[in-house]
Amino acid sequence: MDLSGWRIASVQTVHAFNGQDQGTVTALKAAYESVPTPPAAAAWSTAAPNDGVDRISRLLDQILRNIVSRLPTNEVARTSALASRWRGLWHSVPLVFLDAGLIPGCVKNPTWRPGLEVTLGITNTVSDALKKHPGPFRCVQITCCYLDMNKEKIKEWMQQVAAKGVQELAFINRPWPFNLPLPTTLFSCTSLM
């Protein structure tokens, strides 16, 4: 099969996996490129000068949820350390989870992927986050893990996302096999849009 038409000129090299041929690398690049932008991706800006008064904590839960829902998952989880008032917020905001968000290299370049050794730690985090958050799952993107190594994990993750009503799911297996079996729960998941 000729995959040359998939090539995107500006894409930088994806970290090659041993035994991956050029066609695979090209197809993976195209896949990473086409992962949709997750909701609530926000830009950086400078902080407002602070006069030492904690006004934000006086805000209604509804407003705090609106704020927290704009943060990436690991940052939301961090706010739950702030105070008891914030602790429940992470769980009360629909989950937006990107495994790429946990890897600095991927945050800088969305089409770059790390080698196998880095992603081994990430798979535990994916499990932890999917297990701890009660749902609903607004958007889950698992595009960094070498799933061939983790068939049991895949089954567990897919059952979690299906049970917790995932709306958007992007799932790119690495390195390649097409014949990776997906749990049937995923196909009966009615919340997927």
């Binding site: 926000a42 950086w44 800006s45 902080a47 006069d51 008064v53 940052e75 961090r78």
Partner: peptide
């Protein structure tokens, strides 16, 4: 509502809990 919520979210981003507490003026 979106604009101001995004502003506060940006103030929280990339900070440790202690830094967030200081930024938001927690005691």
């Amino acid at each position: 509502q979106s604009l101001v919520a995004k502003k506060v979210a940006d103030m929280i981003k990339g900070k440790s809990p202690m830094e967030i507490r200081r930024t938001l003026g927690f005691p």
